[in-house]
Each structure stands twice: as structure tokens, then as C-alpha cells.
């Protein structure tokens, strides 16, 4: 399995294609619904350098706070990405993200954003919260914890051997669009709905 070290450059991202298995190394940042709104409210200067060249992980983890104050991830699988569809392309553009980790795939607007900015959609296996939490080697820092709560905060983490599959690449290809279209055609045939 190929390694992808983050942060990374655009050329590396452009070389990736749908179906590639990758193991991520380095820094990523979690962010979901509240984070995406917040990132587009203005330029969030504190977190911006951490997002540049890295990827945002659609994840609301279970987190343990230890007695000495440090945090660790107890369970950390991906959440459904489709909810960020209205915002994702703009967040990628504004913060120089090279990709997104999530589950379930995203739509046409994000696919175009990936193409325009040079970024990829990386699918982690939904529900595999223990496998993925083990790949989180360190919780570096957290933004907006008090305001958003544990699941919605932006957690800056280091990962190693974090397994993902490219399901939307920077060349306009989407596995999700293909599977949706083919399965719709099969259903229509099955139910006698085809034109």
C-alpha cells in the first residue's frame, strides 16, 4: 500500500486516481458541520496554517481526557460527508486543503472543487472507529472545543498507517457517481421503470 505523507503538494495529489489504496502519515485536522460553517465565516487564522496542504477529516471522535490534561482518541471513524456538500469546495479553496477524508462520498460541486484546486476525496471505512483510532498516534491540539463540543471541535492529530481509498480524484472521476448510476439503472430494470 502506498504512503501519502501530509502535508503534501499538488503534484502528488494529481497523481492519485480512483481506486488507489493509501496509508496516511502526518498531520490532519478533524472538522464536521459546525467547523465547516465556522471556517467560512471568515479567515480563521489560527487554524489556517495547519490546514494548508493537509486534509480535513469528517469525524466526530470519542475522546478521553487524561488526568494530566492530554487527550487521546477512543473511537474515531468517519461521519457522512454529504452534509458538507454545500461548503466543501469553498473550504478547500480558501484554506489550501489537498483533500477530505470521510464516508459516503460527495456530489458534483465538491468533485469540481477537487478538480479546480487539486484535491482528492479519501474514503475511510465507516464504523471502523477502533481501527482508525489506533492509527491516531497523537492529539496535538484542539480548536473550538468549548463552543462546539467534543464531536464538532477541530482536533489536530498525527496519524500513522491510516487506511483510506481514493474514491473521488482530481480529474473528475467519482466511484460514488458510477455506483449510483449503475445501481439506479439496475433498480429501474428490476421494477420495470425504464423508459
Amino acid at each position: 500500500m502506498a504512503k501519502l505523507t501530509l502535508p503534501c503538494d499538488v503534484e502528488t495529489i494529481r497523481s492519485l486516481k480512483v481506486g488507489d489504496f493509501l496509508e496516511l502519515e502526518g498531520r490532519i485536522v478533524t472538522g464536521r458541520d459546525s467547523a465547516h460553517h465556522w471556517l467560512l465565516e471568515g479567515h480563521q487564522a489560527d487554524v489556517a496554517p495547519l490546514l494548508q496542504g493537509s486534509v480535513i477529516y469528517h469525524c466526530g471522535p470519542v475522546v478521553k481526557k487524561h488526568e494530566d490534561g492530554h487527550y487521546s482518541f477512543v473511537a474515531a471513524g468517519p461521519t457522512t460527508s454529504a452534509r458538507e456538500e454545500p461548503y466543501q469546495a469553498d473550504v478547500i479553496g480558501r484554506y489550501g486543503l489537498r483533500g477530505v477524508i470521510g464516508k459516503g462520498g460527495m456530489g458534483a460541486r465538491t468533485l469540481k472543487g477537487l478538480q479546480d484546486h487539486g484535491a482528492v476525496y479519501l474514503h475511510a471505512v465507516g464504523g471502523t472507529a477502533q481501527v482508525l483510532a489506533q492509527a491516531v498516534t497523537k492529539v496535538e491540539q484542539v480548536f473550538m472545543l468549548k463552543e462546539f463540543g467534543v464531536p464538532e471541535a477541530l482536533w489536530v492529530i498525527s496519524v500513522s498507517n491510516f487506511p483510506v481509498v481514493v474514491t473521488m480524484d482530481s480529474h473528475g472521476n467519482s466511484l460514488h457517481a458510477e455506483v449510483e448510476k449503475a445501481s439506479r439503472a439496475k433498480l429501474e430494470k428490476l421494477l420495470g421503470l425504464s423508459a
Binding site: 466526530g60 477512543v74 473511537a75 471505512v125 471502523t128 477502533q130 481501527v131
Partner: peptide
């Protein structure tokens, strides 16, 4: 993942 969660009594999914 199911094995890990079961062995450690930790949430299967976050």
C-alpha cells in the same frame, strides 16, 4: 474493527 472493539470493550463506532 469488531474484534478490536470487543477485546477492549470500546465503542465499535464513534
Amino acid at each position: 474493527n469488531i474484534e478490536l472493539a470487543s477485546g477492549n470493550w470500546q465503542p465499535i463506532c464513534q
